[in-house]
Design a protein around this nucleic acid. Sequence first.
DNA 1: ATTATATGAAACCTTTAGGTTTCATGTCAA
DNA 2: TTGACATGAAACCTAAAGGTTTCATATAAT
Lengths: 126, 126
Amino acid sequence: MDAASPKTDVFQAIADPTRRQLLRMLGDEEMPVTAISGHFPMSRTAVSKHLRILTDAGLLTERKVGRETRYRLEPEPLLELKRWLAYYERYWENKLSALKRYVESDGSEDGFAAPLEAVERRKDEP
Amino acid sequence: MDAASPKTDVFQAIADPTRRQLLRMLGDEEMPVTAISGHFPMSRTAVSKHLRILTDAGLLTERKVGRETRYRLEPEPLLELKRWLAYYERYWENKLSALKRYVESDGSEDGFAAPLEAVERRKDEP
DNA sequence: ATTATATGAAACCTTTAGGTTTCATGTCAA
DNA sequence: TTGACATGAAACCTAAAGGTTTCATATAAT
């Protein structure tokens, strides 16, 4: 699977801590499987499977060099995560956006003077 | 579990597409379980479990109102994700950082004139 | 040629995820 | 007070995740 049509979702791929560690490890230089797996408390085969999942998600590229396969970070798919996260910027960005939310959803209260704490959790009881 | 000591990892929590949809839905107003579950093709109980997982990760707050429980987005834990992602900024930030990486790891080639494509994937064969 | 290394594929196992259905409990409405 | 609603807990099911060990194959080194 190439990066254009990932078989594995990037959210799914980074859910595992071992895989996140792998991404860190392979950011600055490509490495062959055995060298990589030396840093993990599991079998080489297990690490190899994680490498496959990351590759399927487009987060790693593999390149055969002689008898070894070297892996390296391919950061591009992380942009999807970045975009997803960008949506939530407005929630912590500044008080204005919180106020905007407040006004949009609830509208009818004493408004602008309300501090942030009051903006959170305010919904009429039944 | 409160947001300070989350029982569930945020990476794990957002790995599921249903849960990501829940976060979107609960960003602007709190909602009770039945109303929420109406938007999903699964049982109310199943949705309820997803809500619990998100709450355990600190991504939702629950508040009892009469006989219903209302859930709402708590964006703060997403900052962990943001911080994690920030590390990778340098990989797509600009060509200078790519060049920096190149120089740091490999050092010995014709250097500055190399286009970005050449900067990627360059490691001596065995 | 023979042996050692590097790796992926296969088969298998155990635990977790994601769902379902059923049941008990608390709260609202008549 | 009786019945309807809203919800979580429990028990259960199936498939997927994350491991392991064993085997086959390609390349390198002697």
